[in-house]
Amino acid sequence: MATPMTADKFVAALRAEGVHVVEYGSWRTHNRAGHGAWGPINGVVIHHTVSSGTDSSVSMCFDGYAGLPGPLCHGVIAKDGTVYLVGNGRTNHAGSGDGDVLAAVIAETKLPAPNEQDTDGNSHFYGFECINLGNGADPWPAAQLDAIERVSAAICRTYGWTAGSVIGHKEWTATKNDPRGIDMDTMRQRIDARLGTKPGTPPPAPTYERFPGDEFFKSYPRSPIITAMGRRLVAAGCSAYTSGPGAQWTEADRRSYAKWQRHLGYTGAAADGWPGRASWDALKVPHTS
């Protein structure tokens, strides 16, 4: 059973992993003591704030709001990768979730789909709120994704866990969709890669899908490459999706890719939504196999 870290050990672990930490207000004594247990600790939950602006988001997560007192997490991850610590101890972040998911986290095995709310997540998980509108269009900057990777790795390294102990709120309960725009399987791969290095050192460089050629897309393929591409378009703020993205190339994929091309400065026929090598290489679609 994992014992919660002291405030000093928590800060030291994050900084050793290369995290830019800001200690916000009285975070060291700010918690929901008396409203449930804190520990044993079994993992980390990643959230999005459904807000914009660093100052207002950090303040909200520290103070809470009507019906949900703060702190609403342990740390707030800003767009620039800065992590603001707002709570130490039990916080109001995970809420009720599926006990089968908790069992899988403890065993670090494949997560089941959550279908119950029978377990208090606030007693078992560190929580990090990431500043994002959660609308599928607000981008996830590389610095913010890097900070998610680093804070998760820092906690996993402390307890000797793998990335199987890190989940998204949407994987804890079917009532949530956060962090929208982040593929948690890909994030766990990043965390495990980092855990294979010494603290604070960069993990191996990620690999990306090679451009599969013009005709690949115009054949309206069904492929995991299309899913990975769509997720990158969403993360880049270039979504025209009303659902998905999925493995089947659709008109929504073409419209989304056209947004990406316009984002890169292409116009006219060069922004028709059919991928080309230069725009594809700039998108950096993660390797799928």
Rank of each mutant, 00 (worst) to 15 (best):
153 A>D: 07
62 F>N: 14
272 D>L: 00
71 P>R: 00
252 A>F: 08
225 I>A: 00
10 F>C: 05
282 A>S: 11
57 S>Q: 09
108 E>T: 07
128 F>P: 03
120 D>Y: 11
114 P>S: 11
70 G>H: 14
196 G>Q: 09
38 W>A: 13
138 D>Q: 10
272 D>G: 03
207 T>L: 12
107 A>P: 06
164 G>I: 08
183 D>F: 00
61 C>E: 15
262 R>L: 09
118 D>L: 08
147 A>S: 00
186 T>A: 13
167 I>N: 06
142 A>Y: 06
51 S>N: 04
117 Q>C: 07
191 I>F: 01
189 Q>S: 12
108 E>Q: 15
121 G>M: 12
152 S>P: 01
54 T>I: 07
196 G>M: 07
117 Q>L: 11
213 G>F: 13
10 F>D: 11
279 S>E: 06
104 A>N: 13
222 R>I: 13
155 I>G: 03
45 V>E: 09
101 V>H: 00
65 Y>D: 05
272 D>C: 00
109 T>F: 07
205 A>S: 15
259 K>I: 09
191 I>M: 00
161 W>P: 02
272 D>R: 01
128 F>V: 06
140 W>R: 03
102 L>H: 01
260 W>F: 09
23 E>M: 05
278 A>V: 08
287 H>S: 04
184 M>S: 00
287 H>W: 06
276 G>S: 05
192 D>G: 11
266 Y>W: 01
168 G>W: 08
125 F>S: 05
67 G>N: 12
102 L>R: 03
166 V>S: 02
160 G>N: 02
183 D>H: 01
199 P>Q: 12
282 A>T: 06
39 G>E: 10
258 A>G: 15
177 N>E: 08
129 E>P: 00
39 G>S: 06
100 D>N: 13
93 H>N: 15
190 R>W: 10
110 K>V: 03
268 G>E: 02
289 S>K: 11
256 S>N: 04
177 N>H: 09
177 N>C: 12
252 A>R: 15
69 P>F: 07
142 A>R: 04
162 T>H: 03
6 T>I: 06
254 R>K: 02
98 D>F: 02
137 A>Y: 01
257 Y>G: 14
178 D>C: 08
9 K>P: 03
106 I>T: 07
21 V>W: 06
288 T>M: 12
33 A>P: 04
250 T>K: 12
172 W>P: 01
179 P>I: 06
178 D>N: 12
73 C>P: 11
